[in-house]
Each structure stands twice: as structure tokens, then as C-alpha cells.
Simulated assay, not measured.
Amino acid sequence: MITSIFNKSKIINLIIVFFITLLAFVTARTNIINETITPVFVFNQLSAFFICAITILVFNFIVTKNNLTKSNSYEILLFSLFFLTLVQTTNHTNILISNFFVLLGIRRIISLRSQKNIKSKLFDAALWIAFASLFYFWAILFFIVIIFSLFFYADNSLRHWIIPSIGVATVFSIAVGVSIIMYNDYFEIFNSSRGISYDFSVYNSTNYIVAITMLISFGIWSSIFYLQNIKKQKKDLRASFKIVIITAIIAFVVVLFAPDKNGSEFLFLFAPLAIIITNYIQTIEDKWFREVFVAILFIMPFVLLML
């Protein structure tokens, strides 16, 4: 039943996805229900939800525009279900903004396959990822995706290798200028934690264990088939599919490095995992198994809400 609903791209699917996202958003804020309601509080909450919603729309655009999945709505369904699986990801605005900028950067990277406006796309990608690192330092690791894209898409022109550095330098200059104006200090704006923590004790709870196990197990299982199917893709799409798997690996490293383990760091994994798992769902020939697979992914987040 679930597969028949999301097997096509329909407006009703977006409504369901936004409802699930709203549920995740509200659930994550049950502990602040007694806070004083002020215009600033309302604005902050609406802004956070708007970022969640626009992230899903941008993600859907990236996937559809670049043919990263077939014409269905599984990827945005999974993205919203991941929000519900780890509702903490909606709580930290800095990471929401950082992830949004990373997606904009990945969008420009994948669009390199057209071989048009390569210089501007490389500059934009570096610019967005650099902005992302201002809100969450370890997002800078996604700069590695740009390096891989140079091997996949661009020629050996020295200019193509220099341009991303110019994008980063541009953001650095802007950030320093803003820091001087706002804080009367050159580097006060660069206050995102640069530490690394390997203390995973915060994940030692039933909700975290079940949620993380589900994400990683389904992700690894789907990745095996995803990697096998890359060669079956059209030649001009193979690099894009490789970019997705590289992004997933880097996102996992960001999770490992996260200085403050609170669950929100998994947000960077949502987009690549949704694409990878969707591609696996599309390869399942047995209708009953596909239905069961999707049903588990759909039901588990709601079960976690009751734990």
C-alpha cells in the first residue's frame, strides 16, 4: 500500500511528507512547551521549521533534476522519516542551516556533469560549503567532494583546481568583515567548535540505539546494491551516483568527528542515505518484499515515538 502511494510523484505525497516533518518538529519540542511564548520564540521556531521544509524541497529538486532516482517520492518520504527517527535533528538551527548549504553545494557539484559553466559551478560549490562550515565547522569536510568532482567531471586545467580555493577565500573575507562589524574582532564569528569527540555514551539509550542501528543497517545493505548498480547507469550519470556515495561516507565521518554528540549530526547523512536506499527499493522485484521493506522504514519511526 505504501509503495503504491509513493511510487509516483504526487502533491499528496508532499503533504504527507510535510506532515511527518511537522510531527518530528513538534515531538522534538515537547520539553519546551512551558516556555514563555514571545514573538522572538515564535519566529525562531517558524524559521527552524521553514529550513526543514525548504531543505526537503531543495533535496527533491536535486534528485529530480539530476535523475538520481526514478520518478517517485520515496527519497523525500525517507528524508522526512529520518527526521522522525532522530527528532533531535530539528532542534539545532545551526546544523539545519549548515546542512542546507551543503545540499546547495552538492547540487552545484552534481550539475557539473553538463560540462557547462564549470568555473562558476566550482566556485558556487566551494562558496556554499564554506558558508556551511561557518555554522558547523566539520561541514568543511564536504570540500573533499569538490576534489573528487574535479577528477570525475573537469579536465586537468589548473584554473579548475584553484577556483574552489577562491570560493573559500571569498567566504573567509566576508566572514571577517562581518565579524569586525558585529563583534569588533577579526575572528569572533568563527566560534563553531573545531574539536573532535569520540565519546558515544550519549547514544546509549534505546531510542538512539534503535534509530542509529536502523539507519546504518539499512544504509549499508542498500549501499551494497547501490555500488553494484552504478555500472548499470548511463555513462553520464555514473559520476553523479559516485558523488552520492562519497557524500554519504563524508557525512558518516562528520558524525564520528562531531564534538557534541546529540543526534543532530546525523542530519548530514539523511540526503545521501535517502537516495541510496531509494535506489535499492527500486531494484526490488518482489512486490511483497518491497512492501515489507518500505513498511519497516515507515513504521519504525512511529514505534520509536512510543518508547
Results as ranks from 00 to 15, higher is better:
144 I>D: 04
53 A>T: 08
173 S>T: 07
110 I>W: 12
137 F>H: 07
5 I>E: 00
107 R>G: 08
58 V>N: 12
268 F>C: 03
46 L>S: 09
270 F>E: 00
166 I>N: 00
76 I>W: 10
71 S>L: 15
106 I>H: 00
59 F>N: 05
34 N>A: 07
219 G>T: 02
245 I>D: 00
100 F>M: 06
206 T>C: 06
52 C>P: 08
183 Y>W: 05
95 I>E: 02
304 L>M: 11
302 F>I: 07
249 I>K: 00
114 S>Q: 12
163 I>L: 13
174 I>V: 14
24 A>K: 07
121 K>Y: 09
108 R>Q: 11
248 A>G: 00
246 I>K: 00
125 A>R: 04
37 I>N: 03
154 A>I: 03
48 A>Q: 15
124 D>Q: 02
168 V>F: 14
236 D>M: 13
12 I>H: 14
278 T>A: 10
255 V>E: 09
247 T>G: 06
21 T>A: 15
248 A>L: 05
284 I>T: 02
122 L>H: 03
277 I>T: 01
132 A>E: 04
280 Y>S: 00
251 A>T: 10
58 V>C: 10
176 V>I: 12
124 D>W: 09
44 N>I: 15
288 W>C: 01
8 K>M: 07
208 Y>I: 04
158 L>H: 10
34 N>C: 04
241 F>Y: 09
302 F>C: 04
187 F>Q: 00
15 I>S: 09
282 Q>W: 11
125 A>L: 09
19 F>P: 01
119 K>P: 02
218 F>G: 00
188 E>H: 02
230 I>H: 05
137 F>W: 14
41 F>V: 10
208 Y>K: 00
168 V>M: 15
54 I>P: 15
185 D>Q: 06
85 T>S: 11
195 G>D: 06
60 N>M: 13
300 M>S: 07
148 F>H: 02
223 S>I: 14
155 D>V: 10
226 Y>A: 02
219 G>L: 14
30 T>E: 11
55 T>W: 12
141 L>Q: 14
261 K>W: 10
247 T>A: 10
278 T>D: 08
111 S>L: 04
87 V>F: 15
24 A>C: 06
285 E>V: 08
204 N>S: 14
28 A>Y: 07
252 F>D: 00
264 S>D: 14
120 S>N: 11
112 L>I: 10
98 S>K: 07
142 F>N: 02
156 N>R: 11
14 L>Y: 11
167 G>L: 12
126 A>W: 13
130 A>L: 15
175 A>C: 09
213 T>M: 13
185 D>V: 07
59 F>I: 06
46 L>R: 05
255 V>R: 03
76 I>E: 07
52 C>G: 04
58 V>R: 07
280 Y>L: 05
112 L>A: 07
282 Q>T: 08
290 R>E: 06
194 R>S: 01
228 Q>R: 11
301 P>A: 08
32 I>N: 03
268 F>H: 01
80 S>M: 13
262 N>I: 13
51 I>G: 11
74 Y>V: 10
123 F>V: 08
116 K>W: 05
80 S>K: 07
73 S>L: 13
82 F>A: 02
100 F>V: 08
83 F>P: 12
76 I>S: 11
237 L>M: 10
278 T>N: 06
37 I>G: 04
10 K>W: 11
